[in-house]
Simulated assay, not measured.
Amino acid sequence: MPTIISHAIVPLAFAAAAGRQRIAVPIALAGGVLAAMPDADVVGFAFGIAYADDWGHRGATHSLAFAAITALVLAALWPRARSMAAILFLFAATASHGLFDMATDGGLGAALFWPFETGRHFFGATPIRVSPIGADFFSARGLETLRSEFVWIWVPCAALALAGAGLRRSRARP
């Protein structure tokens, strides 16, 4: 898995590229939280839920179904999230988690299509170094992970945010 910081940066970069008029700051921040949220499934280890179980790490919480349900529940509970644009953004933010995990070089893959099929999937190319869980993050492998994420997530996200801001500025000029 990429680190929770990198998961959160993806929807924040998309929101920055789109601009505050399209994606309000509270919705963007909620997207950042939702993008990191699927990794809360690691608490299952403490309750005896095995990694490979449907509700284990990278299981149901990393699926498109979970992303859709999460976005719809949030919209039902939070009036600010009731527009189609907000719902789609929040869905994409949550779904991005499983997609980015599919680009990592370790673990069992992500159960993107749960509950319709329980297989775990990776992309054909897996350039992102998988993040160690827990205290092992503060190791040489953790640094390797951050370097990988910088190249494959942070730089493209910064480019996207800057390009979107530049495009908006150029359109705003008379």
Results as ranks from 00 to 15, higher is better:
residue 109 G to C: 03
residue 107 G to C: 08
residue 125 A to K: 13
residue 118 T to R: 12
residue 122 F to L: 09
residue 127 P to N: 04
residue 128 I to F: 09
residue 124 G to K: 08
residue 124 G to F: 05
residue 111 A to E: 03
residue 131 S to H: 06
residue 121 H to L: 13
residue 105 D to G: 15
residue 123 F to C: 07
residue 137 F to L: 15
residue 119 G to W: 03
residue 123 F to R: 04
residue 127 P to Q: 02
residue 105 D to W: 11
residue 108 L to V: 01
residue 133 I to E: 08
residue 108 L to Q: 02
residue 136 D to Y: 13
residue 118 T to P: 00
residue 130 V to C: 01
residue 112 L to F: 06
residue 103 A to Q: 13
residue 121 H to P: 02
residue 118 T to L: 07
residue 123 F to K: 10
residue 123 F to D: 03
residue 116 F to E: 07
residue 131 S to E: 08
residue 117 E to P: 00
residue 114 W to E: 07
residue 131 S to Q: 09
residue 131 S to G: 07
residue 134 G to W: 07
residue 109 G to F: 04
residue 110 A to Y: 05
residue 132 P to W: 03
residue 116 F to N: 06
residue 113 F to Y: 10
residue 136 D to R: 15
residue 104 T to K: 07
residue 121 H to V: 00
residue 129 R to D: 09
residue 135 A to Y: 14
residue 132 P to Q: 07
residue 122 F to T: 02
residue 124 G to N: 13
residue 130 V to A: 06
residue 125 A to Y: 08
residue 112 L to G: 05
residue 109 G to A: 03
residue 134 G to D: 10
residue 103 A to F: 03
residue 122 F to N: 11
residue 114 W to M: 10
residue 105 D to I: 06
residue 103 A to D: 04
residue 120 R to A: 01
residue 122 F to K: 11
residue 133 I to G: 02
residue 104 T to Q: 09
